[in-house]
Amino acid sequence: MAKIIIPTPLRKFTNGEAAFESNGGTVKEVVADLVASSAGLGEQILDGSGNLRSFIKVYVGDEDISALDGEATSVDANAVISIVPAIAGG
C-alpha cells in the first residue's frame, strides 16, 4: 500500500499518527482516502471544490506532483507521499 506522511501540524486530525496507508492508485485517491478517515483534515488541505489548497504541496518520493501529473499522478504500493505545508515568515 502507498504510504502518506502526515506533517506534524496536521497530526491532531489523525489521532497523532505520523503516516497513513492506502490502496489508492493515484495521489487524488490516496488523499481522498486519508481525508475520509480523518475528521476535520479535509478542510485544512482541500478547497471548496475538493482540490488541494494552493499552499499545500504534495511530493511522491522526491518529486513535486506539480512536475508530474498533479493529483492524477499514479502511485504504486511502495510509494511514499508527503504533504508539505508552506513554511515562511519575517
Binding site: P7, D64, I87
Partner: peptide
C-alpha cells in the same frame, strides 16, 4: 526581513524525523 523554507527541505525534515523516531517540533 524574510525567510522561507523550500518544500523539498520540509519534506526531508519530516522523513528524517520519522526514520529517527523523533518529532518535527517546529521552526
Amino acid at each position: 526581513r524574510r525567510f522561507e523554507i523550500s518544500p523539498l527541505d520540509y519534506m526531508k525534515a519530516e522523513r528524517y524525523a520519522l526514520s529517527n523516531d523523533l518529532t518535527l517540533l517546529g521552526v
